[in-house]
Amino acid sequence: MQMRKFLISAACAISFLPGIASAAVAEADALPSLKWSFDGIFGSYDRPQLRRGSQVFLEVCSGCHSLEMVYYRNLVDIGFTTDQAKAMASDYEIEDGPDDEGEMYMRPAKLSDRFVKPFANTNAARFANGGAFPPDLSVITKARKGGTDYIYGLMTGYLDDAPADFDLSEGTYYNKYYPGHQIFMAQPLYEEAVDYEDGTEPTLEQHAKDITAFLAWAANPEMEERKRLGIKVILYLIILTAMFYALKRRIWSNISLEEFVHDPYVVEYEQEMQRHKRPN
């Protein structure tokens, strides 16, 4: 009876936990719910999709957004060859130095470099974007409530005109899914924004899916290894726990109750308890 009560209260508690972040004050429309290739215990990344997403990032997003936690060598993990990744890196210049004269200089980026930032620092970023700061996107799918569905919604949720009763501030745009609906970023993706090298049809939805998948990978590059190892670990634990249970049942089933009375060690314990003389 107590067990059931406890389980019900525990279930209530657990069900509240996902709502922990939901006390956000600003409202937004309910998010679209998509199926991603990397959902679930057996999920994995669709590498052609990640490569298309990287193209979207480099050609569109990287103009304002940094991706500082990702290195050009990580592009090899999504299926580019070392030479391709090297070529993509060398399109960008990175500051290095000082040289022998004490001067800093620019050089093409290498595989071992981080993705090059579009702006030198936060102030420069704000200045170039009317006071708004385009955040680094390395972990953005983990940094927003709704995660991948939110990013996809954001990309596709722009309306040309705000609803009639909505007062849109100067310099902002109306987005269905952005909390508060007013976002400083103009719609970044349109149909045919990027000409896909693998020939996939460049619809807005496709661009949005691909960039979201790419950003999900950028935030969780370890995901596939993590899930693979997780399945092995939990399977191992289930088998081991079952064996522990079998052993436990066996050890506990063979007790004859009376014999401990004459256990010499327990007799000594009894004498010790006499010494402490506890009542009741």
């Binding site: 936990l17 953005i140 983990k142 940094a143 995660g147 993590r226 190892l229 997780g230």
Partner: peptide, 13 residues
């Protein structure tokens, strides 16, 4: 292995 950010807060990223 499967829900590492369940107990956390998105804002901390």
């Amino acid at each position: 292995f499967f829900a590492p950010d369940f107990f956390g807060e998105p804002d901390n990223y």
